[in-house]
């Protein structure tokens, strides 16, 4: 396969970030790192889809206020979510006069959006781009699983979709954290057919992308203070560690998973941990970015992972492919 790692030096920087989360995420171990939260997961709306839209709109407005920019300062918004036709994001962008491009890579959407933004900014024609993703537990359950009130049991492998949204404002000059490089992943399918077992679907993709990232960038896993996958969950993370060890680049204590970090698995009944398009975007924009500003982490590799799962293809007997993109951030 051809090389797919690109370096940006310090041309692309994070100017500001914003996060908004639901009650379960706020009550989780990272609760205090999130900017905004809400207790009613309907946000006073008539449906959970409308609630997800309101959440995303609130987030983008808040990010604009926080960064003291108005809509005309933003060259482009690259956003996505998990719903059919990325409906939540499209209706969100109806509220803004900002050029918009939709993105979809399941739970790796945040990475796709960051990478596209970084490429455009480093190309010189764009100055300031917002990357954002949202997901909502109740809309995702409905999209991919069963009605909320159906009395069924979750398998031990199930994960809990994060209710929330996270946004990163990238630009070409302001900020102390740079998006230094990225590795674009390929679709990897090892034949897992259990749509509850997202961790196992995505672990091979994560391992493939990370492997290539280390090789093509010429660094060891130890180069980073923190390596963070998107939403492999607890069991999926263990699979990834095994895969990385087998291929000769073991990852150690600097490795963690956003889905594992965001919830307290023992107390919050979330199965293997968090998942969803907002899992990596809330954890990165809330927790990791703030830690980088304080200097606690200097070099971070974020690897959002996506299970490219469709209800139709699973019913037609297809296995579930995974994808993962790697994005590195460094304090400059």
């Amino acid at each position: 396969m051809r090389r797919s790692t690109y370096e940006f030096g310090s041309d692309v920087r994070i100017e500001e970030t914003a996060t908004i989360v639901g009650p379960r995420e706020k009550d989780g171990p990272l609760g205090k790192y999130f900017d905004k939260d809400f207790r009613d997961d309907l946000l006073g709306q008539k449906s959970h889809e409308k609630a997800e839209i309101k959440m995303h709109v609130t987030l983008l407005r808040y990010l604009l206020n926080k960064s003291k920019h108005d809509q005309n300062d933003i060259d482009l918004c690259i956003s996505g979510d998990l719903l059919d036709e990325i409906m939540g994001t499209c209706l969100t962008m109806r509220e803004f006069d900002i050029p918009f491009m939709g993105a979809y890579n399941a739970c790796a959407t945040f990475a796709e959006s960051l990478i596209t933004a970084a490429m455009l900014i480093s190309g010189g024609k764009f100055r300031r781009i917002i990357s954002s993703t949202s997901s909502h537990f109740s809309t995702a359950e409905r999209q991919y699983r069963y009605p909320l009130e159906l009395g069924n049991q979750r398998t031990p492998l199930a994960q809990w979709t994060v209710t929330g949204a996270g946004a990163t404002m990238l630009n070409d000059s302001l900020g102390t954290v740079a998006l230094t490089s990225c590795t674009i992943g390929r679709v990897v399918d090892f034949g897992v057919t259990d749509s509850n077992d997202m961790g196992a679907c995505m672990a091979p993709a994560a391992s493939d992308t990370m492997q290539r990232h280390f090789e093509e960038r010429g660094v060891d896993p130890d180069y980073y203070d923190l390596i963070l996958t998107g939403d492999l969950g607890d069991a999926g993370s263990r699979l990834l560690k095994i895969l990385m060890r087998e291929k000769g680049t073991p990852i150690g204590d600097n490795y963690n998973d956003c889905g594992v970090l965001i919830f307290n698995r023992a107390a919050q009944d979330v199965g293997q941990g968090g998942s969803g398009a907002a899992c990596s975007s809330t954890v990165f924009n809330g927790y990791v970015y703030k830690k980088m500003l304080r200097g606690e982490y200097k070099k971070v590799l974020l690897v959002p992972t996506g299970a490219l799962c469709s209800k139709t293809s699973v019913l037609q007997g297809e296995s579930i492919p995974g994808i993962a993109h790697a994005v590195s951030f460094e304090v400059i």
Partner: peptide, 25 residues
């Protein structure tokens, strides 16, 4: 990259947590 990887699928069925049948029954 798309071919069922038998070795990986075996690893998955060995390593991933299972339902606790006695409790659920």
């Amino acid at each position: 990259m798309s071919e069922p990887n038998k070795r990986y699928l075996e690893l998955v069925s060995k390593k991933m947590p299972k339902s606790r049948h006695l409790t659920t029954m």
